[in-house]
Amino acid sequence: MNHPVSLFQPPVWHRRDWLLRVGVSLCATPALAQSGGAATLPAAQSLPDELARALKNKQPLIVMVSLEGCVFCRQARQSHLSPMQKTGTVIVQVDMRQNQPVLDFAGKLTTHDQLTRQWKVSITPTLLFFGPGGNEVAERMEGAYLPDFYGPYLEERIVQGRKAL
Protein backbone atom coordinates (compact mmCIF):
# COMPACT_ATOMS: atom_id res chain seq x y z
CA MET A 1 0.00 0.00 0.00
CA ASN A 2 1.36 3.41 -0.97
CA HIS A 3 1.37 6.06 1.71
CA PRO A 4 0.79 9.63 0.57
CA VAL A 5 3.53 12.15 1.32
CA SER A 6 2.46 14.52 4.04
CA LEU A 7 2.36 18.15 3.05
CA PHE A 8 3.22 19.05 6.64
CA GLN A 9 6.47 17.15 6.91
CA PRO A 10 9.27 19.34 8.19
CA PRO A 11 11.79 20.20 5.47
CA VAL A 12 15.14 18.45 5.33
CA TRP A 13 17.78 21.16 5.58
CA HIS A 14 21.04 20.59 3.85
CA ARG A 15 24.13 22.34 5.19
CA ARG A 16 24.39 24.62 2.14
CA ASP A 17 20.75 25.72 2.49
CA TRP A 18 21.19 26.38 6.19
CA LEU A 19 24.36 28.44 5.64
CA LEU A 20 22.67 30.46 2.91
CA ARG A 21 19.65 31.23 5.09
CA VAL A 22 21.76 32.13 8.11
CA GLY A 23 24.10 34.25 5.97
CA VAL A 24 21.27 36.18 4.36
CA SER A 25 19.65 36.85 7.72
CA LEU A 26 22.96 38.03 9.19
CA CYS A 27 23.45 40.46 6.35
CA ALA A 28 20.03 42.01 6.81
CA THR A 29 21.19 44.13 9.72
CA PRO A 30 19.88 47.60 10.58
CA ALA A 31 23.24 49.14 9.61
CA LEU A 32 22.85 47.76 6.11
CA ALA A 33 19.26 48.89 5.84
CA GLN A 34 20.04 52.45 7.00
CA SER A 35 23.09 53.00 4.84
CA GLY A 36 21.46 54.06 1.61
CA GLY A 37 24.56 53.68 -0.60
CA ALA A 38 27.02 50.94 -1.29
CA ALA A 39 30.37 51.29 0.43
CA THR A 40 33.41 50.94 -1.80
CA LEU A 41 37.10 50.39 -1.35
CA PRO A 42 39.81 51.44 -3.78
CA ALA A 43 40.89 48.72 -6.18
CA ALA A 44 44.46 47.55 -5.77
CA GLN A 45 46.66 49.07 -8.48
CA SER A 46 50.23 48.90 -7.16
CA LEU A 47 50.77 46.68 -4.15
CA PRO A 48 54.32 48.01 -3.52
CA ASP A 49 53.04 51.61 -3.38
CA GLU A 50 50.02 50.70 -1.25
CA LEU A 51 52.21 48.68 1.12
CA ALA A 52 54.65 51.61 1.44
CA ARG A 53 51.77 53.93 2.42
CA ALA A 54 50.57 51.44 5.05
CA LEU A 55 54.05 50.88 6.49
CA LYS A 56 54.60 54.64 6.66
CA ASN A 57 51.61 54.68 9.06
CA LYS A 58 53.09 51.71 10.98
CA GLN A 59 50.18 49.55 9.85
CA PRO A 60 49.91 46.36 7.80
CA LEU A 61 48.38 46.70 4.35
CA ILE A 62 44.90 45.19 4.42
CA VAL A 63 43.76 43.57 1.18
CA MET A 64 40.17 42.47 0.86
CA VAL A 65 39.55 39.75 -1.71
CA SER A 66 36.00 40.24 -2.90
CA LEU A 67 33.63 38.76 -5.44
CA GLU A 68 31.04 40.73 -7.37
CA GLY A 69 27.59 40.20 -5.87
CA CYS A 70 28.90 38.76 -2.57
CA VAL A 71 26.55 39.97 0.17
CA PHE A 72 29.07 39.08 2.87
CA CYS A 73 31.70 41.22 1.12
CA ARG A 74 29.29 44.15 0.95
CA GLN A 75 28.50 43.81 4.66
CA ALA A 76 32.20 43.70 5.65
CA ARG A 77 32.97 46.75 3.47
CA GLN A 78 30.00 48.74 4.69
CA SER A 79 30.17 47.98 8.41
CA HIS A 80 33.91 47.84 9.03
CA LEU A 81 36.37 48.35 6.18
CA SER A 82 35.09 51.53 4.49
CA PRO A 83 34.83 53.44 7.79
CA MET A 84 38.39 52.34 8.66
CA GLN A 85 39.64 53.33 5.21
CA LYS A 86 38.04 56.76 5.55
CA THR A 87 39.99 57.35 8.78
CA GLY A 88 43.34 56.60 7.11
CA THR A 89 43.82 52.83 7.31
CA VAL A 90 45.26 51.63 4.01
CA ILE A 91 42.81 49.05 2.65
CA VAL A 92 42.52 47.98 -0.97
CA GLN A 93 40.31 45.50 -2.74
CA VAL A 94 41.26 42.71 -5.12
CA ASP A 95 38.36 41.32 -7.12
CA MET A 96 38.28 37.58 -7.68
CA ARG A 97 37.54 36.64 -11.31
CA GLN A 98 38.40 40.13 -12.59
CA ASN A 99 41.14 40.82 -15.12
CA GLN A 100 41.90 44.29 -13.77
CA PRO A 101 45.67 44.92 -13.97
CA VAL A 102 47.70 45.31 -10.79
CA LEU A 103 51.39 45.38 -9.88
CA ASP A 104 52.23 42.55 -7.48
CA PHE A 105 54.68 42.89 -4.60
CA ALA A 106 57.57 41.98 -6.94
CA GLY A 107 56.60 44.82 -9.29
CA LYS A 108 55.30 42.46 -12.01
CA LEU A 109 52.10 43.23 -13.87
CA THR A 110 49.36 40.69 -13.16
CA THR A 111 45.59 40.67 -12.68
CA HIS A 112 43.33 40.64 -9.66
CA ASP A 113 42.19 37.09 -10.50
CA GLN A 114 45.76 35.83 -10.87
CA LEU A 115 46.64 37.32 -7.46
CA THR A 116 43.75 35.51 -5.78
CA ARG A 117 44.94 32.25 -7.31
CA GLN A 118 48.55 32.95 -6.30
CA TRP A 119 47.41 33.66 -2.74
CA LYS A 120 45.23 30.51 -2.79
CA VAL A 121 42.09 32.42 -1.83
CA SER A 122 38.96 30.44 -2.53
CA ILE A 123 36.33 32.10 -0.32
CA THR A 124 35.11 35.66 -0.10
CA PRO A 125 35.44 37.87 1.71
CA THR A 126 39.03 37.14 2.67
CA LEU A 127 41.17 39.75 4.38
CA LEU A 128 44.94 39.49 4.10
CA PHE A 129 47.39 41.52 6.17
CA PHE A 130 50.74 42.31 4.54
CA GLY A 131 53.98 43.68 5.97
CA PRO A 132 57.51 44.25 4.67
CA GLY A 133 58.39 42.33 1.53
CA GLY A 134 54.73 41.52 0.87
CA ASN A 135 54.74 38.85 3.57
CA GLU A 136 51.55 38.07 5.47
CA VAL A 137 51.92 39.32 9.05
CA ALA A 138 48.63 38.19 10.56
CA GLU A 139 46.22 35.29 10.24
CA ARG A 140 43.79 35.65 7.35
CA MET A 141 40.13 36.38 7.96
CA GLU A 142 38.27 34.02 5.65
CA GLY A 143 34.54 34.19 5.06
CA ALA A 144 31.77 35.81 7.02
CA TYR A 145 31.85 36.08 10.79
CA LEU A 146 28.93 36.87 13.03
CA PRO A 147 28.43 40.64 12.78
CA ASP A 148 28.99 41.16 16.51
CA PHE A 149 32.40 39.49 16.32
CA TYR A 150 33.74 40.72 12.97
CA GLY A 151 35.07 43.98 14.39
CA PRO A 152 36.91 42.40 17.34
CA TYR A 153 38.45 39.71 15.11
CA LEU A 154 39.54 42.38 12.63
CA GLU A 155 41.10 44.50 15.39
CA GLU A 156 42.90 41.41 16.72
CA ARG A 157 44.45 40.78 13.29
CA ILE A 158 45.53 44.42 12.93
CA VAL A 159 47.23 44.30 16.35
CA GLN A 160 48.89 41.02 15.35
CA GLY A 161 50.08 42.65 12.12
CA ARG A 162 51.44 45.73 13.91
CA LYS A 163 53.45 43.55 16.28
CA ALA A 164 54.99 41.71 13.32
CA LEU A 165 56.16 44.99 11.76
Rank of each mutant, 00 (worst) to 15 (best):
M1T: 10
N2I: 11
H3V: 14
P4D: 07
P4L: 11
L7A: 14
H14C: 07
H14M: 11
R15F: 02
D17I: 05
L19R: 07
L20H: 07
V22Y: 02
V24Q: 15
S25H: 13
C27Q: 14
C27M: 12
T29R: 15
A39Q: 04
L41M: 05
P42T: 00
A43R: 03
A44I: 00
S46R: 00
P48W: 04
E50W: 02
E50I: 05
L51A: 09
L51D: 06
A54W: 09
Q59N: 11
I62R: 00
V63D: 00
E68F: 07
F72A: 13
C73T: 05
Q75A: 15
R77A: 12
S79H: 08
S79K: 14
S79F: 08
S82V: 04
P83I: 10
M84G: 02
K86T: 00
T89F: 11
R97Y: 12
R97V: 01
V102N: 07
T111V: 13
H112Q: 11
Q114N: 14
Q118F: 02
V121Q: 04
P125T: 05
T126V: 06
L128G: 03
F129E: 05
F129S: 06
F129P: 03
G134S: 12
M141H: 09
E142Y: 05
G143D: 09
Y150H: 09
P152R: 07
L154D: 01
E155A: 15
R157K: 14
I158N: 06
Q160H: 08
Q160E: 02
G161P: 00
R162G: 07
